Amino acid sequence: MRIVVTGASGNVGTALLRRLTRLGVHDVVGVVRRPPRPVGVYEHVRWHSIDLAADDAAAQLRPVFDGADAVVHLAWGFQPTRNVDYLHRVGVGGTTAVLDAADATSVGQLLHMSSVGTYAAGRYGQRIDESWPTSGIPSSPYSRHKSEAEAVLDEYESDRGEGGVPIARMRPGFIVQRAAASGLMRYALPGFLPTLAVPLLPVLPVDRALCIPLVHADDVAAAVLSAVERKATGAFNLAADPPLTRDGVAKVMHAKPIHIPSGLLGTLVDLSWRTRVQPIDRGWLDMAFTVPLLNCARARAELDWRPQWSSMAALSDVLTGVAQQAYAESPPLRRRSMLEQLRRDLTDGQLTTRHLP
């Protein structure tokens, strides 16, 4: 099969390339803004440099998509959090460009990486299936954009019916892996805070009500490949068991849990973001405390999907990566350097505002 992957050098993309490299039977094309060096899992990929936020992105994508059996759309933006218009152009505009190009070239299948963030708030402890409303969490730009991107797909399917490109949608919980540790910390920690401080925290000051769906990137990659091979359509929830609680996080971190109400945490996160102390907006915290838990029965039945990593093992894997300062040889997942971040804050502007995080 000829498989085109947008965002192929990111968290899920790297895990998917690992899986495809082991198989060695597919022709893989990667579409990214900044192609990685051709080493490791990035070596046997034909790379194309395209910014999905560009006005002519769809036109640039058409010759790349031509003849593709499947397009796996993983590309998304997480920073700069202060430039919501740019993140909208990358996420929603990029999805629109991918869909337009896929339709123009009649690709065999489009697989869109959605998220648990596309869902409306859930009831505490209740698992929802894929029929739950996809209106998102209003205070989270990430969630709103994921919801809007799915609305673009809904409109296309409604207009084209069976004559359009078949579309599958993955809706995973929060995705982690060891190789993404440096990348995740770069986007989540202020530049002056050393990564090694995270696994050494003696206390975990979080609301006791925290309970989130988590999944390892390798398991998401397995579901993606299964959906492509089976030409599956429709939406699929993806999450590991058990749902991750505050006490579960504290156990993996060997930290003492301390109850801090989520409302107070939200205020602290918002104030520290507004004063540019740290790079994560309040919407991420609101999403963590309101997204529903996921019923993954459809993925088990139609994709024969069984996660190989429990949520606790997945969290342990990424925290081990944080402790070891693990990274991958791609621009999004490169080694996190305090000196580099501080230098770029001074020369290029802060992570939350500059165009190229």
Score class of each variant (00 low, 15 high):
residue 261 P to V: 12
residue 2 R to E: 05
residue 126 Q to F: 03
residue 199 P to W: 12
residue 13 G to W: 04
residue 153 L to W: 01
residue 257 P to A: 13
residue 351 L to I: 02
residue 334 R to W: 08
residue 73 H to Q: 08
residue 152 V to Y: 03
residue 95 T to E: 10
residue 261 P to W: 13
residue 150 E to R: 09
residue 174 F to D: 11
residue 182 S to E: 09
residue 120 A to F: 00
residue 18 R to Y: 07
residue 229 E to N: 12
residue 327 Y to P: 07
residue 160 R to L: 14
residue 341 Q to F: 11
residue 266 G to P: 03
residue 58 A to F: 03
residue 285 L to M: 07
residue 245 T to D: 14
residue 134 T to L: 12
residue 216 H to Q: 02
residue 71 V to D: 02
residue 20 L to V: 06
residue 65 F to E: 12
residue 219 D to A: 03
residue 133 P to V: 01
residue 225 L to A: 09
residue 52 L to I: 06
residue 130 E to S: 11
residue 211 C to I: 07
residue 107 V to H: 03
residue 173 G to F: 04
residue 143 S to M: 03
residue 83 N to W: 00
residue 226 S to F: 11
residue 327 Y to C: 10
residue 188 A to W: 11
residue 45 V to N: 03
residue 331 P to Y: 02
residue 298 R to N: 05
residue 38 P to L: 00
residue 84 V to A: 08
residue 86 Y to M: 14
residue 179 A to P: 03
residue 60 Q to M: 13
residue 6 T to I: 08
residue 12 V to T: 03
residue 81 T to F: 01
residue 357 P to I: 11
residue 17 L to P: 06
residue 349 G to L: 10
residue 221 A to K: 05
residue 176 V to R: 00
residue 62 R to T: 08
residue 33 R to S: 00
residue 140 S to Q: 11
residue 101 A to H: 02
residue 168 A to D: 15
residue 236 F to M: 04
residue 204 L to P: 11
residue 98 V to P: 06
residue 223 A to P: 04
residue 173 G to Y: 01
residue 316 S to P: 02
residue 81 T to I: 01
residue 164 G to P: 05
residue 272 S to L: 14
residue 350 Q to A: 08
residue 109 Q to Y: 08
residue 202 P to F: 15
residue 23 L to I: 01
residue 138 P to E: 06
residue 1 M to P: 08
residue 268 L to A: 15
residue 87 L to F: 01
residue 313 A to W: 01
residue 309 W to V: 02
